[in-house]
Write a protein that binds this DNA or RNA. Structure first.
Lengths: 155, 155
DNA sequence: TGCAATATAGAATTTTGTTCCGTTATTCCG
DNA sequence: CGGAATAACGGAACAAAATTCTATATTGCA
């Protein structure tokens, strides 16, 4: 479905990114409109896929997930079959929050969230036993200094 | 505030991570409980900070944000004043979704989401003009092969 | 300017969130 | 092990919000 977002749509999205728990009345007030148009626009943006999901963001530390790694992967394998198995392995592992195929000499980057270094090692051992990987570098996060899921919106 | 999460709490969190738009009745049914205990537990987990926020996740492509970069930064500066200014610069820029201070020879990693390569270059030029940086490598994502905000929960 | 299409505000209805209460399960201590 | 105190539970009652509807206003275009 095709979408063209005007300033009001973007204001609504901005509010929903900030806090999706707000009532329609609150959002309407914040964006200078009223209930119905806000609701219609939200529904359309959901249908169009602009709004993909609404979700609760949890505190990693509170859940004992205190080790975050960025994993840089080089591989010599580039067949479709290998990639399919690699992707399957990543999707099967909830500790992999994000994975990208890259341009350049590093082939993939993963973001992995685990309780501690030992758990990361278990993940690493399991992964390389499932799919052939040429070279792996793990970057350990000491401190998350910025974290947002809010995409930048031009108004 | 202290928290100890039992299996029911974790099931609730799992549902909220999957879809925070569900009604309490739906969640209660899904986790095998009823409205009131679910509501009480959600409220407590919010107060305790286990649930940080509920938010709408948007589609980057639909918003014309088609270029995602991971930026690896080395710097020779490690004074507090430099770090304060660096952090301020990152927080002022909505295209920086995530930033981590790292262990090892790379000092920082950023995740930057912009419309295109030109926009990334503008970001890059602006950043290095504000804070002294020794060495920067940008990894360009060709394809996001996994993406979730759902933290792994043991049951 | 005038017509058609679309968006809007506000009221009516339905669904959901929130509180209350009597009961059941659990924990703690003798 | 038993019994009292505490906390969690399910269901009903109430309050608030989402969703639908309708009449009015606005916008785009000929």
């Amino acid at each position: 479905m095709e979408v063209r977002l005007d300033a009001l749509d973007r204001k609504i999205l901005s509010e929903l990114q900030r806090d999706a728990d707000q009532s329609l009345d609150e959002i309407a007030r914040a964006v200078g409109s009223s209930k119905t148009p806000v609701w219609n626009r939200v529904r359309k943006m959901r249908e169009a896929g602009v709004i993909r999901q609404t979700t609760a963001l949890l505190d990693a530390d509170a859940l004992g997930l205190e080790a975050c790694f960025f994993v840089l992967i080089r591989t010599s394998e580039h067949e479709e079959e290998w990639q399919r198995r690699f992707l399957e392995a990543l999707n099967a592992r909830p500790e992999v929050l994000e994975a990208h195929r890259l341009a350049g000499d590093i082939d993939y980057i993963l973001k992995v969230l685990v309780p501690n270094a030992r758990a990361y090692d278990r993940f690493y051992q399991a992964l390389i036993s499932e799919v052939r990987i040429h070279n792996v570098t793990a970057l350990l996060s000491m401190e998350q200094i910025k974290s947002t899921t809010a995409l930048p919106l031009e108004f």
